[in-house]
């Protein structure tokens, strides 16, 4: 019992010492390094417009619904794309709710993009991501949406396709992960090219 009491005292002291070092000094050192070396990224990769207003983060999906924008993946974060409430649907493979939502999303995707009834739809277009904030869509998904976006904006398809290609990120170090298209950055580029005209 006496040993245990002595160990308790050591425990309290060590917990306090470690709290100062690991919970005070350590995050501050990382903070100082991060803010000095990578300030934009350490603060959320925020995108500001010419008036200095924050319009979003390059890493986080936003809702886009109109035809003139590329549309991101469905989102289960909060009421949708809520960047302070990240979440997936957590619905399982035999969930009726999930199957119903996928059926509806498939039908909607085919309609807005003018696809024939039997056309397979890219999986990322009709399934929710793990975070609900996935900024990317697959290249196949972007290419299928390009014609619709071009038509809605009165642009030649070629021009939109060029923008899609320019916003396609390859695999990291040519091996890791999957090729992808960042929807928010692509849509901002579309708006910019419209403004420039």
């Amino acid at each position: 019992m006496k040993t245990f009491l002595a160990e308790l005292k050591t425990s309290v002291l060590l917990t306090l010492v470690l709290a100062v070092l690991l919970c005070g000094a350590y995050p501050l050192v990382v903070w100082a390094g991060a803010q000095a070396l990578f300030p934009a990224r350490a603060n959320g990769s925020l995108l500001t417009d010419k008036d200095g207003v924050v319009r979003g983060s390059a890493l986080l999906a936003q809702s886009f619904t109109s035809d003139k924008y590329f549309q991101p993946r469905p989102s289960a974060a909060g009421t949708g794309y809520d960047a302070s409430s990240s979440s997936g649907t957590n619905l399982g493979p035999t969930s009726k709710k999930l199957a119903d939502s996928i059926a509806a999303a498939v039908a909607a995707y085919r309609t807005v993009n003018g696809l024939a009834a039997g056309t397979p739809v890219p999986a990322d277009a009709v399934t929710s991501s793990g975070s609900g904030l996935d900024p990317d869509i697959s290249v196949a998904n972007a290419n299928l949406q390009a014609a619709r976006v071009a038509k809605a904006r009165g642009l030649p398809l070629e021009k939109v396709s060029t923008l899609v290609a320019a916003h396609t990120t390859g695999r990291d170090l040519t091996v890791l992960g999957e090729p992808r298209v960042n929807v928010l950055l692509l849509n901002l580029a579309l708006d910019d090219s419209a403004a420039a005209r």
């Binding site: 993946r73 997936g88 493979p93 399934t127 991501s129 869509i137």
Partner: peptide, 20 residues
């Protein structure tokens, strides 16, 4: 089940996964 609904079979099960 999802593939019968029209999801491209080659893409696998992407529900709850991130594109990157």
């Amino acid at each position: 089940i999802h593939q019968k609904l029209g999801v491209a079979a080659a893409d696998g099960n992407l529900e709850g996964k991130e594109v990157r």
